[in-house]
């Protein structure tokens, strides 16, 4: 409108609000339709989840804020956030939630959605690669300990080949494959 076009002076409000009409109002329904999302709308933002979380102090978005963002429709921000991947999955938030919102499970849903759109942090992809290539995440490296205990250097009977085949056929295989 004309008035806005002619605006030369400083803005009336010195904030840059998030335009609700640009958000994805269907996002909450998308999460709700997933296996653990049915109680999502019950959230009343008490922030019990954040109080319960052992690592939220280092998060930019706290657990209750992530749930808020899902409800408001901030799809992009939630799915590309590091926090959903940093979650320890200790389930304390979910255990304590007074409204039975499955907070941790919802973060799993978010991770799955993010993975579908290849929004996976490099470190996670790296882990997946290790898993694919070696069939295990933690290899025996410090064999002096085994030596001290009179054990043979390699773990006897350890075979990861079968597991590698299985994981190749799963979504993990697709994720790593997509990166190559």
């Amino acid at each position: 409108m004309t008035e806005a076009d002619e605006k030369d002076g400083p803005p009336v409000v010195l904030v840059d609000p998030i335009d609700m009409s640009k958000l994805d109002s269907e996002f909450r329904n998308e999460i709700k339709s997933m296996p653990y999302g049915d109680e999502l709308n019950a959230c009343f933002a008490c922030s019990t989840c954040t109080a319960a979380c052992p690592i939220a102090n280092v998060w930019t978005y706290k657990p209750h804020q992530l749930i808020r963002m899902i409800i408001l429709g901030m799809r992009e921000e939630v799915l590309s956030s590091d926090e959903i991947w940093l979650c320890l999955t200790c389930f304390q938030c979910q255990e304590r939630c007074p409204q039975k919102v499955r907070v941790t499970d919802i973060f799993f849903d978010c991770k799955n959605l993010a993975a579908e759109e290849s929004k996976i942090p490099e470190t996670i992809v790296g882990l997946a690669k290790t898993l694919m290539e070696k069939g295990q995440l933690y290899e025996v490296t410090a064999d002096w300990e085994r030596e001290d205990m009179d054990l043979e250097p390699a773990v006897p009977g350890l075979s990861t080949n079968e597991f590698k085949d299985i994981i190749k056929a799963t979504r993990t295989g697709k994720i790593v494959g997509g990166e190559e």
Partner: peptide, 15 residues
């Protein structure tokens, strides 16, 4: 309407 969301620490604009 611009609303300050104190839980998110963000400003939201609604029409």
């Amino acid at each position: 309407i611009i609303v300050y969301d104190s839980l998110l620490d963000k400003y939201l604009k609604f029409t």
